[in-house]
Amino acid sequence: MELKLHNVNKTYDEKDILIDINLDIHDESGIAIIGPSGAGKSTLLRLLSLIEKPDSGEIHVNKYDLNEIEPEEYYKKIGFVFQAHTLFPHLTVLRNITLILEQVHNKTKEEANKIALDLLDRFELSEHIHKRASQLSGGQSQRVSIVRGIAISPEVLFFDEPTSALDPVLTQEVLSTIIKLREEKMNFVIVTHEILFAKKAADFIIFMDCGKIVEMGHVDILENPQSKELQNFLSNVFLW
């Protein structure tokens, strides 16, 4: 996957949230964004997925220039897994997945069902297909969200803290699902506070603080952090 950002800025209510973000990443398939809460990680992810636009700057994801592309076109190329509560609660697990395939990706009902059922089977969710999304446990619900994200065969899958609403056991359940994706060479960008997981699942680490990228590089930087901020952050995280 390629990520290229040039002088990207974002403000909310005249407050600087992202300040002059620059990135140039080639040929990495797993990217983890870490950093304290309020650093701007989710905001960056919303810009990368074109849920929002930057105030200024350029963003390229793979061959797409996000200032140029029609959002509808771009949304067909990416998947997104949110923190929690974004399965549509009135629909069954199966329908949560097939609805997008049928309506947005123009698959027939049969094609959509086949794709969804195969994936749900592979992720050991077959027994839940006819449950309403609102009847699932937190962990199941996030795993279904992941299946929904990959069902459209996205070029990149974005995750925003997919386990932060879960207890440790369910967290492991979801994280091993994501590691499975990595073994299948899925490109993803994940915001996470699970540092051990980031070490295992990511090739490239971006550490953010106060709206800036403070340190980034190969996953090794977690073993050997250069900046004071990352050192502090890691020592606090490991205390937990």
Partner: peptide, 29 residues
């Protein structure tokens, strides 16, 4: 939930599809 609106957007639903399949059915219930 606010996040549901973001999800609908990023999954590429048109405005009509959002209302027809997601918002109105939930509101009715």
């Amino acid at each position: 939930d606010d996040m549901q609106y973001q999800a609908m957007t990023v999954f590429g639903f048109t405005t009509y599809q959002k209302y027809r399949y997601i918002i109105i059915p939930q509101l009715l219930k």
